[in-house]
Design a protein around this nucleic acid. Structure first.
Lengths: 182, 182
DNA sequence: TGGCTAAAGCAGCGATCTTTGCGTTAGTCA
DNA sequence: TGACTAACGCAAAGATCGCTGCTTTAGCCA
């Protein structure tokens, strides 16, 4: 039944958007009773967050040992994750939930994407290579990806994701990258 | 009465989030009848969009004729606009409205922020200076600003906005900036 | 001053969401 | 096998929202 509800959520998010996903609608689609969903998850935001959590543990690319290639893979992976049906909607759901869980949803969403990029960065650091700080990767790669996907900017494809990583690596091959900030 | 409704919208967006802004709630806060608001604006999305439109026509910084300084001013202005109460919430409202108006809201929001940066870019182009294309400014300045404000990343202040512009100008002082894409 | 039009208030309806109490089922362990 | 617990279905009640006729008010112009 949990799987039925989750699948219904994904389908509804894809079809009508995350803001239109309501618990009775999910229950109808899943063929279960709304009260069960209310008791188990409480609010639609919590349900969305739960589904978003389960979504990202799949198909993480393996590392090859080259920082730039690894970053490219994670970037392309993130872009594909955002681009697939309902991907951006889940991002929006994390970004704009109830005020109480707002901080939690935001931190969780940022932590999810940060964890992805931390893997190749830490690996490079252990190899002794100079790697840009995570903050810089967020600014130069993740932020443009999210921005362009949210606004449906055309030309936001794998090539573009790779270019972002390439430009980041070119700007400072092994530089710390912080621009003198405290 | 229009002003009362607008103020109520801003307050409610700040307090409970844009997704919780409903017409009866706005009407209660503004001290008017819900039916009046329904007739005038129709939906909550339209009301949000109207308020968002009125918001940005204020206090645009004047140009000094130096591209970097002008970009810095617009960047700081945009950051302050996002940071003030309800600023991000309005962005979210534009990003996630009804499916029908989704494209329209997205295009409007992107166009608003693009128009801000087009002013100093066009001015520099008319002076004969080489200016980066708007797309590049969006990637390197606007996207990080939005990303960090949405996720409440600490240290996102005027200094940071200026650093983004500085790094953009340093990377290619008068280069076209497109990385060989078609 | 007296009609005319646009806009706002009022009351109520229907639909949907949310919650809660209660009965039923399934799964577990002694 | 029989009790126990947790989860689910069912149904009813309360609340909110979106919307719509109808009335009332206010501004305007001859």
């Amino acid at each position: 039944m949990r799987t039925a509800v989750h699948r219904a959520v994904v389908e509804l998010v894809h079809e009508v958007g995350a803001d239109k996903v309501t618990i009775p609608a999910v229950a109808r689609r899943a063929g279960v009773n709304p009260s069960s969903v209310y008791r188990r998850w409480g609010t639609a935001s919590a349900l969305l967050a739960d589904v978003a959590d389960r979504r990202q543990d799949e198909e993480a690319p393996e590392l090859v040992g080259d920082l730039r290639k690894d970053l490219e893979r994670v970037a392309v992976w993130t872009l594909e994750d955002l681009s697939r049906p309902g991907g951006v909607a889940f991002f929006r759901a994390d970004v704009a939930p109830d005020v109480d869980e707002r901080r939690a949803g935001l931190r969780a969403c940022l932590e999810r994407v940060s964890a992805r990029f931390r893997v190749p960065l830490d690996a490079a650091a252990e190899r002794g290579e100079g790697a840009p700080p995570l903050e810089r990767v967020l600014d130069r790669v993740v932020a443009p990806l999210y921005f362009r996907v949210v606004f449906s900017v055309p030309g936001t494809d794998e090539r573009y994701a790779r270019d972002l990583v390439a430009e980041l690596c070119a700007s400072g091959p092994d530089a710390p990258g912080d621009r003198g900030r405290r």
